[in-house]
């Protein structure tokens, strides 16, 4: 993937991140059960997005680095 596309996707990801973790986007996920890894669902939901953010940043970085090397 080209670095520019990767960067745009990352920006879209973080917009989605803000949407599903604040009002009103978070409402459908604002529940206690089912517990996941012992955590209330909403706590797991927030942690999941934090982890996804790490993966997104890493993939963006890989794409950018490959493009810099390629030049």
């Amino acid at each position: 993937m080209r670095a520019r596309t990767a960067r745009r996707l990352a920006i879209a990801f973080f917009a989605l991140y803000a949407l599903v973790l604040t009002y009103p986007g978070v409402l459908p996920f604002n529940r206690i059960r089912p517990l996941v890894f012992g955590l209330p669902f909403i706590m797991f939901w927030v942690a999941l997005w934090v982890a996804l953010a790490g993966v997104t940043l890493w993939l963006t970085h890989l794409a950018a680095r490959r493009e810099r090397r390629g030049r």
Binding site: A10, F14, Y17, M43, V50, A53, L57
Partner: peptide, 15 residues
């Protein structure tokens, strides 16, 4: 659950 705001903002802030 109010405390989950702290968990939420960090990565959004550092991106």
């Amino acid at each position: 659950a109010a405390v989950f705001y702290i968990l939420s903002y960090g990565v959004l802030g550092i991106a």
